Amino acid sequence: DEVTIHLGDKTIRVDGLDKELLEILKELARRGADEEELRKEIERWER
């Protein structure tokens, strides 16, 4: 499953996201997290 996250004018595509992680990323994005913060969160989950 590829998920596309839209952040204002930026788009991040991620393969096979965990549903819980997806919810966390959506919440972070709502709070104004930037792409770098979201990537760090994704990397934390992948470990």
Rank of each mutant, 00 (worst) to 15 (best):
E46P: 06
D15L: 02
L28A: 02
K40Q: 10
R30P: 00
G32K: 02
R39N: 04
L21T: 01
K19P: 15
E35V: 11
L7C: 03
E27K: 09
K26H: 09
G32P: 00
I5Y: 00
L17E: 02
D1V: 12
E41F: 15
G8H: 09
I42R: 03
A33N: 01
L38N: 00
E36L: 10
D15Y: 04
I24V: 10
E46V: 12
I5R: 02
R31T: 05
H6L: 11
V14M: 06
L28N: 00
D15M: 02
E43I: 08
E27S: 14
R30T: 04
T11N: 11
K19S: 12
R30W: 06
K26S: 06
I24D: 01
I24Y: 10
D34H: 07
L38W: 04
E37S: 08
K26I: 14
R13E: 08
L17M: 09
E43H: 08
K26Y: 15
T11I: 14
L21Y: 01
G32A: 01
E41K: 02
D15K: 14
W45M: 02
E27W: 08
H6Y: 03
I12V: 07
R13F: 11
E27C: 15
D1K: 10
G32D: 01
R30V: 04
L38E: 00
H6N: 14
R47T: 09
V3W: 15
E2L: 12
W45Y: 06
K10N: 10
G8M: 06
I24S: 04
D34M: 07
L38A: 02
K40A: 14
E43W: 05
E36Y: 15
L21K: 03
E20K: 14
A29P: 00
L38T: 01
E23C: 03
L7T: 05
G16F: 09
K19H: 10
L7F: 11
K40R: 13
R30M: 08
D34P: 11
L28H: 01
A29Q: 06
D18H: 12
L21C: 02
L17H: 06
L38Y: 05
W45P: 00
R30C: 03
I12W: 02
G16I: 12
L25E: 00
E37V: 12
A33H: 04
R13L: 12
L28R: 01
K26V: 12
E2W: 13
D1Q: 12
I42E: 01
G32E: 01
I42Y: 05
E43T: 04
R13D: 07
G16R: 10
I12L: 09
D34A: 09
L17T: 05
E36S: 10
K40D: 07
K40I: 07
E41N: 03
A29H: 06
K19Y: 09
I5G: 03
E46C: 15
V14E: 03
I12Y: 03
E36F: 14
A29K: 10
E2K: 10
I24F: 08
V14W: 08
E35Q: 06
T4D: 10
I12P: 01
E35Y: 14
E27G: 09
E37K: 06
E46Q: 15
R13T: 13
K40W: 09
A33R: 02
D15I: 14
G16L: 12
A29D: 01
E35C: 04
E2D: 11
D18L: 06
L22E: 02
L21A: 01
E20Q: 14
R47D: 07
A29I: 15
E37L: 07
G8S: 12
E2H: 13
I42H: 01
R44Y: 07
K26F: 15
E37M: 12
E36T: 10
D18A: 14
I12H: 03
E37G: 04
G8P: 06
L21P: 00
R31V: 03
T4H: 15
E20I: 12
L22W: 12
L17A: 07
A29N: 04
L17I: 13
E41I: 10
R30L: 12
R31M: 07
L38S: 00
K10A: 12
R31N: 08
E46Y: 15
E35M: 09
D9G: 08
G8Q: 11
L7P: 04
E46R: 10
E41L: 08
L38F: 08
G16T: 11
K19G: 07
I5A: 03
R47W: 11
L25C: 02
E2R: 09
G16K: 11
T4F: 14
G16D: 08
D1H: 12
I12K: 01
R39G: 02
I42F: 04
L7A: 08
T4W: 05
E41P: 00
L7N: 04
T4L: 12
E43V: 07
D9Y: 02
I42N: 00
R47G: 11
H6I: 13
D15W: 02
R31D: 04
T11A: 11
R47F: 13
A29L: 14
I12F: 06
E35P: 07
E23N: 10
E27N: 13
L22P: 00
E43Q: 11
T11M: 04
I12G: 02
E2N: 11
E2Q: 13
K19F: 10
I12N: 02
L28W: 04
E35N: 05
K19W: 11
D15P: 15
K10Q: 08
T11C: 05
E41T: 12
L28I: 02
L21E: 01
D34C: 03
E23D: 12
I24L: 10
E43A: 05
H6F: 04
I24Q: 05
D1Y: 11
I5M: 03
R44K: 11
L38G: 00
K26P: 00
L22S: 03
R31F: 05
E20S: 09
A29F: 15
A33E: 02
T4C: 11
L17Q: 04
I42A: 02
K40N: 10
R39S: 03
R44V: 05
K40C: 03
R44D: 05
L21R: 02
V14Y: 09
D34S: 15
I24G: 01
E41Y: 14
D34E: 08
K19C: 05
L22F: 10
E27F: 11
E23S: 12
A33Q: 02
D9A: 06
R47A: 13
D9L: 06
L28P: 00
D18M: 07
L7M: 07
D9M: 05
V14C: 07
E46H: 13
K26T: 09
I24E: 01
G8C: 08
G32R: 02
L25N: 00
R47K: 11
D18Q: 14
E20P: 04
I12Q: 02
I42D: 00
V14I: 12
R30G: 05
L22R: 09
I5C: 08
L22A: 07
I5L: 06
K10R: 09
T11D: 10
D9T: 06
E20N: 10
R44L: 09
R39T: 04
E20C: 11
E23A: 13
R30A: 10
R39C: 05
E27Q: 13
E43F: 04
I12M: 07
D15V: 14
W45S: 01
L21W: 02
R44W: 09
E41W: 15
E37H: 05
E23G: 08
E23I: 12
V3G: 11
V3K: 09
V3R: 05
V14A: 06
K40T: 07
R39D: 02
R44P: 00
V14L: 15
T4M: 11
E35D: 06
H6V: 14
E37N: 03
D9R: 03
A33G: 05
R44E: 07
R44N: 10
K10T: 15
V3C: 13
L25V: 03
E36H: 12
L28G: 00
H6W: 05
R47H: 13
R30D: 03
L38K: 01
E20T: 11
D34V: 05
K40V: 06
R31K: 09
E20H: 10
K10Y: 15
I24K: 11
W45T: 01
E20A: 14
L25R: 00
I12C: 06
T11L: 13
L22D: 01
H6S: 13
R44F: 08
R13G: 05
G16H: 13
L7R: 02
E41G: 01
I42M: 07
E20W: 11
E36I: 10
L28Q: 01
L25W: 01
G8N: 09
L25Y: 01
A33T: 03
K26D: 02
A33Y: 07
E2I: 14
L25T: 00
D18P: 15
V3L: 13
L21S: 01
H6C: 09
E37D: 12
E2C: 07
R13H: 09
K26N: 07
R44S: 08
V14R: 02
H6R: 11
V3I: 14
E35G: 04
D18T: 10
I5V: 06
R44M: 10
K26R: 15
E46I: 15
E43R: 06
K26Q: 14
K19Q: 11
L22M: 11
E23F: 13
L21G: 00
L38P: 00
E35T: 06
G8Y: 04
K19R: 10
V3M: 14
E36W: 15
G16C: 06
E37P: 00
V3P: 09
E36K: 08
R39E: 03
I24A: 05
E41D: 00
R13P: 07
T4V: 15
E27P: 00
L25I: 09
D34Q: 10
D18I: 06
T4G: 06
E23H: 09
R44G: 05
R39F: 08
L7K: 02
E37R: 12
L25H: 00
D15C: 15
E2T: 13
I24P: 00
E43P: 00
D18W: 06
E2M: 13
G32Q: 01
A33K: 03
G16A: 09
R47L: 15
D9F: 04
L7D: 03
D15R: 10
T4R: 07
W45I: 01
R39M: 14
T11F: 08
R39I: 11
A29E: 03
E37W: 05
A33C: 02
L7E: 03
